[in-house]
Design a binder for these strands. Structure first.
Length: 432
RNA sequence: GUGGGCGUAGCUCAGCUGGUAGAGCUCCUGGUUGUGGUCCAGGCGGUCGUGGGUUCGAGUCCCAUCGCUCACCCCA
């Protein structure tokens, strides 16, 4: 018998109505902001060789461990729906020899990503990210520019209660050494730690810094801090970035405990959060990834970039979506004997006339629609009103009339005159 | 994977201690209104998430299951 009705899979959603309009606005703000700064659009495939993510994101991360949508195609290749955007962009940089272009190469995207997770507010299995990547230079100005763009994007769409946190991870070696040091410190104070933190010493020692637990907090006061263990050049780089952000008037907080979820980050890392979001407070984040391109088989190429969740920006921004744009005109069909169906010759003839008019009016640049749902004349007028049309054309067997709703004028015209009148009246309105 | 809350019309919801399903909005039709969003009347629309159980009788009680949602974990 009847199956259960099909629904969008868990963690996915349809975009429509006001939500679609808000997204379109966000996209146009992002495009203007990023293209003005020299970023050009890139779209990479929805899926990539699984290896791309396994190698770059980090074997031990949750993403690779349990969140990837991985499948085999007809030839047995292992493919994965992209869980993030930086590795694919770097792959494209290498694949298209972009190191031969003038550096830095700046690219931006707005695409969907996939992670198999339990969904909740601001977290979905298919989600959208807007992101920007700048490759080919380790100039701290590029870091500062990247961060500033994320900051300005979120502010421009009306992001509320946003905070920017900033830190530096140094080199991967410094980071690894630090991690061991921290684990040692935690093990030395194990009896003070909360059970949860204790069970995560190996997996995620950095998390101990976020704990609210009394004993853990006191144990962490004496803990080593990564920022104190990075190289002199990295400190200098970080100082430059901070100075440039100060100069640009971008407010930030240095947070030495800031961690990012992906393995490839080096030096600068940052995260933008909003209190308006619920549990998933991260709106966007990113950092520098100086070893990534080389890891993918390219020349040693530094890079810096970020990604921000579209759904999260929208939650933080509370964008009042513009309503559907109104129509200039609506074409109604008036049949003498309404009882006769659409197969009736007269009705078909009427429809042909109206349809021709519709197409000619659209070619002339007028936003116009016509009745295509079999409504009564009253229903058609109501529909015209709903669509915001200020001009109503009524096509009947005897005549074609144009009524200007705003001034109440009504005139009987032939089709050529009608077109002129439509253009005249709708353009006059447009320029007012 | 774990825990809390919730599943009745397209949407928002009502339905008391079990008695055989309702309202508002939307949509359509007719009337009315200066041929337009008003007002009036009518209509379309639901195997009450699904499957069992208790009962003469279940939207209501019990069990299971699925879905949605929020949170943990983690992250955008």
């Amino acid at each position: 018998m009847s199956e259960a009705r099909l629904k969008a899979p868990r963690g996915t959603f349809d975009v429509l109505g006001a939500d679609a309009a808000a997204r379109a606005r966000l996209e146009s703000v992002a495009r203007r902001l990023l293209e003005q700064a020299g970023y050009s659009r890139i779209e990479t495939p929805c899926f990539e060789a699984s290896e791309l993510f396994e190698r770059t994101v980090g074997e031990a991360t949750d993403i690779v461990q349990k969140e990837m949508y991985t499948f085999r195609d007809g030839s047995g290749r292992s493919l994965t729906l992209r869980p993030e955007g930086t590795a694919p962009v770097c792959r494209a940089y290498v694949e298209h020899g972009m190191h031969k272009r003038p550096q830095p190469v700046k690219l931006w995207y707005l695409s969907s990503f996939f992670r198999y997770e339990r969904s909740q507010k601001g977290r979905y299995r298919q989600f959208f990210q807007v992101g920007a990547e700048a490759l080919g230079s380790d100039d701290p100005a590029l870091d500062a520019e990247s961060i500033t763009l994320l900051w300005r994007l979120v502010r421009q769409v009306g992001g509320r209660d946003v905070r920017l946190r900033l830190s530096s991870l140094g080199s991967p070696t410094a980071r690894r050494a630090y991690r061991e040091q921290l684990k040692e410190h935690l093990r030395a104070h194990e009896e003070q730690l909360s059970e949860e933190v204790r069970s995560r010493i190996e997996l995620n020692p950095l998390r101990a810094f976020d704990s609210e637990h009394e004993g853990t907090r006191s144990a962490m006061r004496g803990a080593p801090v990564l920022l104190d263990h990075i190289s002199e050049q990295d400190v200098e780089h970080f100082e430059e970035v901070k100075g440039l952000l100060d100069a640009a008037g971008v407010p930030y907080e240095v947070d030495p405990t800031l961690v990012r979820g992906l393995d490839y980050y080096t030096r600068t890392v940052f995260e933008l959060t909003s209190e308006a979001l619920g549990a998933q407070s991260g709106v966007g984040g990113g950092g520098r990834y100086d070893g990534l391109v080389q890891q993918l088989g390219g020349q040693a190429t530094p890079g810096v970039g970020w990604a921000a969740g579209v759904e999260r920006i929208l939650l933080a921004a509370d964008m009042s979506a513009p309503s559907e744009p109104p129509l200039d005109a609506y074409i109604c069909l008036q049949l003498d004997r309404a009882a006769e169906g659409v197969r009736d010759g007269a009705a078909a003839e009427l429809r042909r006339r109206a349809f021709t008019l519709l197409q000619r009016a659209r070619s002339a640049g007028i936003a116009v629609d016509m009745e295509m749902a079999g409504r009564s004349l009253k229903g058609q007028r109501a529909q015209a009103a709903r669509r915001g049309a200020s001009l109503i054309v009524t096509v009947s067997e005897q005549a074609t009339t144009l009524r200007d709703v705003e001034c109440g004028e009504e005139q009987c015209l032939d089709d050529g005159e009608l077109l002129h009148e439509l253009v005249r009246r709708s353009s006059r309105r447009g320029t007012e």
